[in-house]
């Protein structure tokens, strides 16, 4: 089970300070606001927290496919840890001036593979298959989308997959088990 989320920082609309203050209150707990207080410039704190929460949500949807919208029910504990329906998820968080990317996986599992790139003419699914076939040339892959995406390997096993896109950026992550 994995999840990921990418945010194109240039695709974030300019809004009033009041809007961002309300956004912060609606999506972050007090503890999260304190934890991320040093990242308030350009609302980076909001988007770091949001990327983590979205990636956790996507993982939780794989655990239990039901829709819910409760951003504060998932809590960022540190830049590499969060909790939600489970007490602890591992987080890999990467950001620069262009994008923010969060990857979530279950504790005790190894870190998943991640790929981030700018959108082009090639569809995301085609990119995923090309990357898999290049990395594992002896194996056969098919992507399936039944409630949530997975990779069918050699018609035998399923690898967890999570896809994300926003603005100019796309990302996918997968686990080889």
């Amino acid at each position: 089970m994995i999840g990921n989320d990418i945010i194109d920082r240039r695709a974030i609309r300019e809004r009033s300070q009041e809007h961002w203050d309300r956004f912060r209150e609606k999506t972050m707990t007090k503890a999260e606001q304190e934890l991320l207080a040093t990242y308030r410039e350009d609302q980076l704190d909001i988007w770091l927290a949001w990327a983590i929460k979205e990636s956790v949500y996507k993982l939780e949807y794989q655990l239990c496919p039901e829709r819910y919208f409760a951003p504060r029910s998932i809590e960022v504990l540190a830049l590499n840890r969060a909790k939600g329906k489970l007490d602890a998820y591992e987080i890999d968080l990467e950001w620069n001036k262009d994008y923010i990317h969060a990857l979530t996986w279950l504790s005790l599992k190894s870190q998943p593979q991640k790929w981030i790139f700018q959108k082009g003419k090639t569809k995301l699914d085609t990119r995923i298959l090309t990357q898999l076939e290049t990395t594992f040339p002896q194996r056969n892959f098919n992507l399936i989308q039944e409630v949530f995406p997975r990779i069918n390997v050699d018609h035998e096993v399923l690898w967890p997959l999570s896809k994300s896109h926003h603005g100019r950026w796309e990302a996918f992550v997968y686990h080889t088990a």
């Binding site: 945010i7 609309r13 809004r15 009041e18 809007h19 309300r22 956004f23 609606k26 999506t27 949001w50 979205e54 949500y57 919208f69 409760a70 951003p71 504060r72 926003h166």
Partner: peptide, 23 residues
């Protein structure tokens, strides 16, 4: 609509209708 924009819609609605939408 993406989920972050759903938060924007809730905030815009609060301001436009002068209401507070709780969790």
């Amino acid at each position: 609509v993406n989920s972050a924009n759903l938060v924007d819609i809730i905030i815009d609605a609060e301001m436009a209708f002068d209401i507070e939408i709780d969790d």
